[in-house]
Computed example of a mutant assay.
Amino acid sequence: MHLELRHLRILQAVSEHGSLTRAAAALGISQPTLTKQVQRIEEELGAPVFLRGRQGAQPTEFGSFVLARTKAVLTNIEEILAYRPHRGELGNVRFGGTMPSWVGGVLDWLESLDAATGVTVRAERTIGTDVDMVVGRRLDLAIVADYPGHLLEPRPELVYRTVAVEPVFIALCTDHPLAAQEEVRLQDLADEIWVVPHSDGLGWPEHLHDACAAVGFYPNARYRLFDTALRRELVATGRAVAACQASLRADENIAVRPISGNPLWMRHLMLWHRDGAIAGYSDDLIRVAQEAQHASIEASPAYSAWALHYGESPSEAELFHSP
Rank of each mutant, 00 (worst) to 15 (best):
M1K: 06
M1I: 01
L5A: 12
L8Y: 05
I10S: 02
V14E: 05
E16V: 11
L20H: 02
G28I: 09
I29R: 13
Q31F: 00
Q37N: 11
R40S: 13
R40P: 01
E42L: 06
L45Q: 09
P48E: 04
F50M: 06
P59N: 12
E61C: 03
F62G: 08
G63F: 02
G63I: 05
V66C: 04
R69D: 12
R69I: 00
A72G: 02
E79F: 02
E79A: 15
I80C: 07
L81V: 14
Y83G: 10
P85R: 12
P85Y: 12
E89D: 15
V93D: 10
V93G: 04
R94E: 10
G96C: 02
G97E: 03
P100A: 11
V103Q: 10
V106T: 14
L107H: 01
E111I: 05
T117N: 11
G118Q: 11
V121A: 10
V121W: 05
R125H: 09
T126G: 00
I127A: 04
V134W: 10
V134A: 13
V134N: 02
G136A: 14
L141R: 12
A142F: 06
A142N: 09
V144K: 00
Y147A: 01
G149D: 09
G149S: 07
H150V: 03
L152I: 15
R155E: 13
V159H: 03
V159N: 11
T162A: 15
V163K: 10
V168K: 01
C173Q: 13
A179N: 06
A180Y: 03
E183S: 14
D188S: 09
E192Q: 15
E192W: 08
V195M: 01
V196T: 15
V196Y: 00
V196I: 15
P197N: 00
G203N: 04
P205K: 00
C212Q: 01
A214M: 03
F217Y: 15
N220P: 00
N220W: 04
R224V: 13
L225G: 05
L225R: 04
L225A: 01
E233Q: 15
V235Y: 07
R249Y: 04
D251A: 06
V256C: 07
R257Y: 12
I259H: 02
P263W: 09
W265F: 14
W265D: 03
R267Y: 08
M270C: 07
M270H: 06
W272E: 01
W272T: 02
H273N: 10
S282W: 09
D284F: 09
I286L: 15
Q290Y: 05
Q290L: 10
E298T: 11
S300I: 10
Y303D: 01
A305W: 03
A307C: 13
L308C: 09
